[in-house]
Amino acid sequence: MSEKKIFNPHEKEIIKDVYKGLDLPTRRLFGKRALSLGAISMLTGCTLTNEDSIEEALMVMSRFNDGVQSWLFDPNKMAPTYSEDMLTKPFPFNAFYGEDEIRPSPDNFKLKVSGLVQDTKDWTLDELRAFPQTSQITRHICVEGWSAIGKWGGVRFSEFLKRIGADSTAKFVGFRCHDDYYTSIDMPTALHAQTLLTLTYADEVLPPKYGYPMKLRMPTKLGYKNPKYIQEIFVTNVNPGGYWEDQGYNWFGGS
């Protein structure tokens, strides 16, 4: 037997009776409550759309801040460098996964190059080691607020970009990595003198936890802008975004 069947025969009478039983002020109060109930349900609807528009507004501000930062960026300003005895030991491992989940890149690895470049040939590690090598000791600043000093060595990225005939008037350089990480940077930062395509850490071949076979190291950018395990580099005019950037971290992410 359904509930409806129980109540159906007397439903109208019951409602009439209850109505009679309710005195006027009580009815008014009931009406008021119903109204406020409606108001509350409308409010929740409002809150939902508000949250979306708040997020939208915050993202607009983040894009505005990208613009402010690229305007502030002075290609001739160098990040401070430090002495060997100031190195942070051990240098912390950091990724979007734990240290036990590192997927080492294969040894027969070749770096791919694509996009707005003249030469799209692949690069072996030995070919990259044949470039003039530089090293520098700089401070890695994480978006979380901590910082650590490390020594990275490798090829000046501007030199590499020149060699592959990259269009230096293009806006972005994008990176695809072996661990499915991806990010992108602005061309002025790519051409900055301290931006290195690093092959070593503390004068040793880059170990797996620091991004073997190569990491792009920029002391002018926060940690999440410095890709490790790089597999492919491409030059483009369409902003490729990034793993964290697409989730809300500021795209420029520079200091």
Partner: peptide, 30 residues
Amino acid sequence: YNASPIFDFLFPRELTVGGWLGGALLWHFA
């Protein structure tokens, strides 16, 4: 601050805004 505390304490979630570090940074820099 909670993402990488300078001192030996964290602030309770109820006092913070943004949901996660990325959200808090968006609020802060807006």
